[in-house]
Design a protein around this nucleic acid. Structure first.
Lengths: 163, 163
DNA sequence: GCTGAAACGTCCTCCAC
DNA sequence: GTGGAGGACGTTTCAGC
């Protein structure tokens, strides 16, 4: 068990928004010098708190204009069926997110495609052919109002839940 | 109007996965030298294709274990109501994603919170108090099967849709 | 438009305080 | 935790193909 203090949270919030911030800028932003910044980041990396640094692209400008939410129900909710569905889904680049859900339907997918034809192809030629898929229901996003990757960290610091 | 060739797509795919890749590594990965890599990235930045470089954190280890999808319906779908709802929602750090949807319900939110108490607080003290909100329906993710930020780019290159 | 190398600037890392 | 300093590295530019 370990703790993160306010400064750690500040650092995480900075790097969440900007992966290329330099230690010097970061130090300035959190009112510290570069050395403790460096040490804190290193410690948090070793704890496995930092997953990945990625570049976000402009989907619209790249012609990826359709955001579709697809609800999938399986025929039987046995462990084996779930696992094979999850594996099948993870191969497809269109599938941005996938959640196993409570309620009537089993999975919720967010899929990004350039147009209806690509969606049709994904659903008919791929999704519907995965064994155990019983029903598929799509709903469309008219507009992406908000999309962010920065997690809501508590401002006061927190106790870590490490394995 | 401009085009992206296969090499541009390769570069974008590399930086989508790794924001800190160096031009030297990138050059190696796409079979080029550093100069054209540098020039191509610069050109794509100027076209506004690259939005942001961010750090992804491990939500579970930070105690942010609840992913909740909240469906919101407004009393009336007039422009004004939509706009004020969207503004209100954009202030809240818990709201990771928000989409204006087709179908019976108006908005779909993905909210991340540490526990049920925080969810309750968000819904009762905040969401339900936004004017024009008629109904709220939540469903829970039992498991985040997949979450990625890398867009599915066509491998053969593409024509850009610039303003 | 690409290559390769060279120069420049900056960042990381360590150490003494 | 501070501040400075060395070495390493990444970025950027340039001549040449």
């Amino acid at each position: 068990m370990s703790q993160l203090d306010k400064t750690d949270i500040l650092i995480l919030n900075q790097i969440q928004e900007n992966a290329r911030i330099t230690h010097a800028e970061l130090a300035k932003a959190v009112n510290l010098s570069t050395t403790p910044c460096y040490n804190r980041i290193k410690a948090m990396e070793e704890k496995g708190l930092i997953k990945q640094q990625v570049t976000l692209l402009e989907a619209e400008k790249l012609g990826l204009t359709l955001n579709v939410f697809i609800h999938v129900t399986l025929e039987k909710q046995v462990e084996e069926a779930l696992q094979s569905f999850e594996e099948a889904i993870s191969d497809r680049p269109e599938v941005m997110e996938c959640y196993l859900m409570t309620g009537d339907e089993d999975y919720l997918l967010r899929v990004v495609v350039p147009n209806m034809k690509a969606l049709e192809k994904f659903i008919l030629q791929y999704l519907s052919k995965i064994p155990c898929v019983a029903s598929i229901r799509s709903s469309f996003a008219l507009k992406q109002v908000r999309y962010k990757t920065a997690l809501p960290l508590p401002e006061q610091g927190l106790t870590l839940h490490l394995d």
